[in-house]
Design a protein around this nucleic acid. Structure first.
Lengths: 156, 156
DNA sequence: TTAATTTTGGAAATGATTTCCATTAAAAGA
DNA sequence: TCTTTTAATGGAAATCATTTCCAAAATTAA
């Protein structure tokens, strides 16, 4: 079975190897877990989800690997204000599913939205271009979040 | 000396009292410190800046007060990825000085920018309106940050 | 296969933030 | 002003996510 670029189960191997990192079972497991969900997983969440199938992958490795993936740009690290970092793939095997977040400051629930994403991203790219010139700053990524109160918390 | 609304040294007293909180020396000190700078202070930074003048305000009080101010919407809490939370007044005695951030993922330096802020904020407000309807979510605030590498880190 | 190098897990350390609780201070009422 | 009620305080101890350490194991290169 041929593997079209960016589409097979190993879509991320290239980037990892190119940077001199090795492909290991633990790393496969972690990316697999992130690929399998749209949830915003914490390191502990990842641990919980792979521990059955890969009982010998420790929490330390998960932190290390997530950190590496963030540096490679394969994973984005979020702070939703609940005291632990959350991780999401920046792009999956099927390509990017770009979205931004609504964060409930009450219950910390996070809603992904894609509405108006194109307008937002277009404006951001325009802004990015100018900012990177003006401040001589190489921009790799952006973050947009709205904070407020979700339906459930509103009705309390 | 009359104090025009939102303009005197006590511009924030109303909001604090209205919510049933008391005005204390510690709280004065903390808001004073935040008002006096455009830096992005951590709790410890605030402690360091007020400790001379108010030696009997403890770190615990600072955390508690900052938390309260965030809940009141007077202060915004940021995460720039360096392991400690940073705080900024959302509006000062002279009114809002609205800006967004460029965050260097190398050295964690943060640059405030106001360029294109109006376009950004306008788009955000439009988006906000639609999102809050669609998801029945009350939006209080937004966050925009760009991540990348600053001049200094680029030249290494 | 062997050598060189990276990656590993688990225990221990770290460090920001919270919790606890007896004491103090602010505000409201008389 | 004095008293009473209630909220706010600080300092020590606890918490808990994340890092660091290091000897052992796994991976790639020779």
């Amino acid at each position: 079975m041929p593997c079209r670029k960016g589409c097979g189960p190993q879509w991320w191997h290239g980037k990892v190897k190119d940077c001199g990192y090795r492909i290991t079972a633990g790393r496969e497991a972690i990316i697999e877990a992130l690929s399998a969900t749209h949830d915003h997983l914490s390191a502990e969440d990842v641990y919980a989800r792979i521990h059955n199938k890969y009982p010998n992958v420790g929490l330390t490795t998960i932190y290390r690997t997530l950190d590496m993936l963030v540096n490679l740009g394969l994973v984005f690290k979020f702070d939703f204000g609940d005291g632990k970092a959350r991780y999401e793939l920046t792009e999956g095997p099927k390509g990017a599913h770009h979205h931004h977040h609504l964060v409930c400051t009450g219950c910390k629930r996070v809603i992904d939205y894609t509405d108006f994403i194109d307008d937002e991203v277009e404006l951001l790219h325009r802004t990015e271009k100018c900012l990177s010139q003006k401040y001589n700053f190489r921009i790799d990524n952006h973050l947009i979040q709205f904070y407020g109160t979700c339906t459930e918390c509103l009705s309390k």
